[in-house]
Design a protein around this nucleic acid. Structure first.
Lengths: 254, 254
DNA sequence: ATCGTTTAAACATGAAATATGTTAAAAACC
DNA sequence: GGTTTTTAACATATTTCATGTTTAAACGAT
């Protein structure tokens, strides 16, 4: 079961480099039958990650398109683990914390599961589901329209929550961090929610692994100055990191 | 897996009559090893349904206390299936439907999964989770505080949603239906939300299996006249049903 | 303290669910 | 038309989960 996901993840990554993969090649590479690969490709095509062609698959990644949550989830898992550990340690007992959508923010939520006396606000159904039965956490879900796949809550209902809530810390996930474009996200609606959460919160901590550094996604979330801390990992492009540090942004490398 | 839940359910029901059960007795009765029963009792004690004592367990059910969701879920499953089927058939494509918390309402959500062009509003995380990836359903989650175990959303945030939303139909779950006390629920906060949903909705359909008929739970939801239709099953107490029918309430027997 | 009972932990077994492989017929491509 | 790929159905393997067994430790009562 673990292998299935790993293999499918690798197929996607392979496709990002080679434009096209053949079932016959993959079969040799992974040492599994062609039928299995066919099933893998079918599953991925179903999610819209790849496009099936006769004998293999081609990439469909046109434009700023985000991979499905499940695929992203175990990508860079060890990195996210380190980043989220640091983020979790910056949260003190008794705080009111907003936990954002996205895989890295979900990892932070996992670290906070056993903590006491926390009030957690989230617009991610996944975070809500994860923390729903923690008796020691006061969990609040923002309302909103459920965005398919991502399971994030968006829209007016979500945004309006930040007119009445003023949390201590916002754990924010992003699609890209760049010197000129600032913090961006793949989805406009999600970006709007993040923007309001930043404005309402005392401090904002962005968690983003190195794959996001230097990238620009579709929708603007905030300028660099609006965020307090960026937690990323060491492999991130040092040039960009150094420039980010000049912009009144505390950068922590996991 | 199905047997585990059934056995645990039966243990709880047994405990409601006898105050106390012994592992040695249960082992004989269910024809399973004592170790298995020990595991069952541990699981139930974990959820707070029973209290573990040396050699067995005693009931903890003081007052009007509701069993945990998981235990209730497969109780009367076939009945809920019939009731929810009827409820689902009363929903027309294009409607805006509120789906409540509780096991029977969740069963209705399951029936609506494949339907098209529905807007579904829910204050149940379980319903939200179930429908989250249905591309043909426009899913809206009310905000609110997550109630432990039940995974329902409660509080001001939840209630206020019904100041701005005016749905066509409200599929409502209840804790009890009675001639004099009307519709009641075990939880005050849930009851408040239900009350507001009834007021905001064009019509309210209560789904409740026979175990609820003639019962009164803790918190008042609504008078009989405020609800349009009650869907229950045939085994329900006929006297009560007949009286209910006199109160301008359409009763449908599954 | 001491005896019998109950529990907890570790490992073994069994059954159900899931993933993978194989085969043969159908469909698609050239 | 002949080759390759796909689909579907079934067979096999793997994994997971519930259950059982055993043993040592913990507990309660005397």
């Amino acid at each position: 079961m673990k292998y299935v996901k790993n293999r499918q993840k690798e197929i996607v990554e392979l496709l990002n480099q080679t434009e096209k993969v053949l079932i016959s090649d993959l079969s040799e590479q992974f040492n599994v039958s062609e039928m299995t690969l066919r099933r893998d490709l079918e599953a991925l095509a179903q999610k819209g990650v790849i496009k099936r062609i006769r004998g293999g698959a081609v990439k469909v990644n046109q434009g700023s398109f985000e991979l499905p949550f499940e695929i992203r989830y175990d990508k860079n898992h060890d990195v996210k683990d380190r980043i989220s550990e640091i983020a979790a340690n910056m949260i003190k007992d008794g705080e009111t914390v907003v936990i954002d959508t996205g895989t890295t923010a979900l990892a932070v939520a996992e670290k906070l599961k056993e903590r006491n006396n926390l009030t957690i606000v989230t617009s991610s159904l996944r975070v809500a589901w994860l923390l729903a039965d923690c008796p020691n956490i006061n969990l609040i879900v923002t309302g909103g329209v459920v965005r398919n796949g991502e399971r994030s809550l968006i829209g007016e209902l979500t945004e309006d929550v930040y007119d009445v809530f003023f949390p201590d810390t916002f754990i924010c996930g992003v699609g890209g961090v760049d010197i000129t474009s600032g913090f961006t996200d793949f989805n406009l609606d999600d970006a709007r929610v993040k923007k309001k959460a930043i404005q309402a919160s005392q401090r904002t901590i962005v968690v983003a692994d190195n794959s996001k550094i230097g990238k620009t996604a579709f929708a603007k979330i905030a300028h660099l100055e609006e965020v307090d801390t960026l937690i990323t990992n060491k492999i991130a492009n040092t040039d960009v990191i150094n420039q980010l540090k000049k912009n009144d942004l505390t950068v922590v490398l996991a």
